[in-house]
């Protein structure tokens, strides 16, 4: 099956598929070494965002990743990949740390959105996302974000204010889930399929809108059908993106990111 013939809704289904490799797979298969670091130094440790330090082809990097989990047990532990404010605050803490040690930052995006719950509101979900948007804009080390599954709204953007945003061929990135979109605009959540087609949420649409820089091709039928190939492709794409920042000054790197978003 050729991926080109897939509809937007097919891709939504693929992006959500239980078979699809999640962040942990890429962390394990792309980096030579990885040490997970924990906690926001304020409230707690949010398992829906994995953060840590590692080596990519021998070079130090900081990794931030939204993780949905694959098994029921793990999904519960990871809150289905929907972060709380402490997840975003941990991410920002580690990104600032990366800046201190001049390490590039690699972010894996895979979430339906930031968690909507009482505790999340009480602890400032809005503030946590807002702060990440502003502080990430100022980072003077390269930030590469890869949307590997679902990129859901502010919960995705909060770790995707990057110099380069890469996207897997069958991943989706949108303002809201197609279900939510059709519920709000058409008062009918059953029209999600139709919504997916008009939302311009596929990699191809987003490339045209300049919301992403590059599409990473998936094996025919989806990333899960040839995991070795997809890990290799993701690694190569990160490496070639990072190569573009060699010799660039910290100010140039931050300004490039600002201009990238200013054009919207």
């Amino acid at each position: 099956m050729n991926n080109k013939s897939l509809s937007a809704w097919d891709r939504v289904m693929l992006a959500r598929s239980i078979e699809r490799p999640t962040s942990i797979f890429y962390i394990t298969n792309v980096f030579d070494d990885f040490i997970e670091l924990h906690g926001d130094r304020c409230f707690g440790d949010d398992a829906s965002i994995i953060g840590g330090i590692g080596l990519l082809n021998g070079k130090p990097v900081t990794v931030i990743a939204e993780e949905k989990g694959r098994t029921v047990e793990e999904k519960t532990k990871r809150n289905f990949g929907s972060p709380h404010p402490e997840g975003y605050r941990k991410a920002l803490r580690l990104m600032k740390q990366a800046e201190k040690f001049r390490r590039p930052i690699i972010c894996f995006v895979d979430t339906q959105g930031a968690f909507c719950g009482m505790g999340a509101e009480e602890r400032g979900q809005g503030e946590a996302i807002a702060r990440n948007l502003r502080e990430m804009m100022d980072l003077t080390v390269p930030v590469i974000a890869i949307i590997i599954g679902e990129g859901g709204s502010g919960g995705a953007l909060a770790i995707a204010v990057a110099n380069k945003v890469l996207m897997l061929e069958n991943a989706v990135y949108s303002i809201l889930s197609p279900e939510g979109f059709s519920a709000i605009l058409w008062k009918d959540s059953s029209r999600a399929q139709e919504a997916a087609e008009v939302m311009k949420m596929t990699a191809e649409d987003l490339l045209k809108l300049n919301v992403i820089e590059e599409i990473i091709s998936e094996p025919a039928g989806g990333a899960h059908l040839d995991k070795e190939a997809i890990a290799e492709a993701v690694k190569n794409c990160i490496l070639s993106s990072l190569a573009q920042y060699e010799g660039k000054s910290p100010e140039e790197i931050a300004e490039e990111r600002y201009q990238r978003f200013r054009k919207f």
Binding site: L133, R134, V161, S174, L209, V211
Partner: peptide
């Protein structure tokens, strides 16, 4: 998605 990008733009 263009609306989403406004959040980052203004924050920048």
């Amino acid at each position: 998605i263009i609306s989403l990008m406004q959040m980052a733009k203004i924050s920048g």
